[in-house]
Design a protein around this nucleic acid. Structure first.
Lengths: 199, 199
DNA sequence: TGTACATCAGTGAACGCGCGTTCACTGATGTAC
DNA sequence: TGTACATCAGTGAACGCGCGTTCACTGATGTAC
């Protein structure tokens, strides 16, 4: 990268863009402030005009990752029609999108979570993706497709299951191909026999 | 720590012991070879008589973590009697032990998994804990406590669920207290109505 | 039992590296009169 | 429209640090004769 003018114009954004790319490619642990600055074509100290420190930059990267996950989930939830089969397919699509993000973008997925961030205010309970999952499960329940008594707390069960599978596959502890079987099993345990017949 | 004799006698083991303690206390990323050697009371280069490099030491730490997890699971699976209620309680105890390990020993739990290790030969599919989970589910199925058709692949669903919850709680994304509700939900989705009445 | 010697398991100094961050600075920009 | 000046957004050199690892070495151990 090379600049024509002395002032960059949108350095903060450019730094985050490049940092996202490097996190994607190398994992967040291998990303350095100096490396990001160099890739942008700027001196390392220039970053300090826009970020308090390296952590602040990496936090911005994590937010991008969460946004990307929200985007994928929203897309998945926007598919299909109004019948029962579509409602079931929506849940499946959401779960697949979650796992798909981890599969397609492992390092960014890892970095979007992780212990390095303060999850105080804008925790994922407030995230769009979580709300979408809840709405989808409510819809299934309203349609009578969920086994009786299962709805309360089910969002945490579903989230844990897909999140756990993502982590397990990411660590090489099982094949990604097992994802379909996992979701089959999850559906079988949640849905009524009638719903399974429709699905 | 201070030694009386020039030769340590069991330096390899001592290094792993201390390294486990430091991983526990600080997380694996903050552990340094020099720091471990210093805590043992030995020069940094002494470690190279016993480990090829820092990674080899950390791999040994990870194996300790896996062993500790196996131990906890085995203990959990060894409880109770021979009736249906005990069989159900055993599954619950195994799941609780898994989550409990993550809760009690977050840094060691994290390090026991993670992308840094080569999971080629002795993957967790070969682990004692995984076999125990499978046997417990087989037992439940043989007793007719599992909903029909649920058994195939259920071990991955259960493992994913508890593993995912552990990660989520570890990252501060939900309270550990939600663990009971999670396991309630998991049981409700897996067990027959008759089994739930017994549980 | 004593002695030569190979081997093992330490020492400690040093190498080389890359990192985050600071600091005095300077070029560019925009605004007031 | 031109000019002084405050402010913003860069530069580049340097600081200080801790790290993994190497290397020549030495003290301790055990074994063969």
């Amino acid at each position: 990268m090379s600049r024509t003018s002395y002032h960059h114009g949108a350095l903060a954004e450019a730094l985050v863009d490049v940092a996202v790319g490097q996190v994607r490619a190398q994992g967040s642990e291998r990303v350095t402030l100096r490396g990001v600055a160099q890739a942008v074509g700027v001196s390392p100290s220039a970053a300090y005009n826009h970020f308090a420190d390296k952590d602040a930059l990496l936090t911005a990267v994590a937010l991008r990752g969460q946004t990307e996950l929200d985007r994928r989930i929203a897309t998945a939830a926007a598919t299909g029609g109004d019948d029962d089969a579509a409602a079931i397919a929506r849940l499946r699509a959401i779960a697949t999108a979650y796992i798909g993000f981890a599969h397609d973008d492992p390092n960014l997925f890892r970095h979007a979570f992780g212990p390095h961030l303060k999850h105080g205010s804008s925790g994922p309970h407030a995230s769009e993706a979580y709300a979408t999952l809840n709405a989808t499960l409510d819809d299934l329940d309203a349609r009578g497709l969920l086994r009786p008594g299962l709805r309360p707390g089910l969002e945490l069960v579903v989230w844990s299951t897909v999140h756990g599978f993502a982590g397990i596959a990411l660590d090489g502890l099982c094949d990604w191909e097992a994802g379909d079987a996992l979701l089959d099993g999850m559906q079988r345990s949640m849905l009524t026999d009638a719903a399974l017949a429709v699905a």
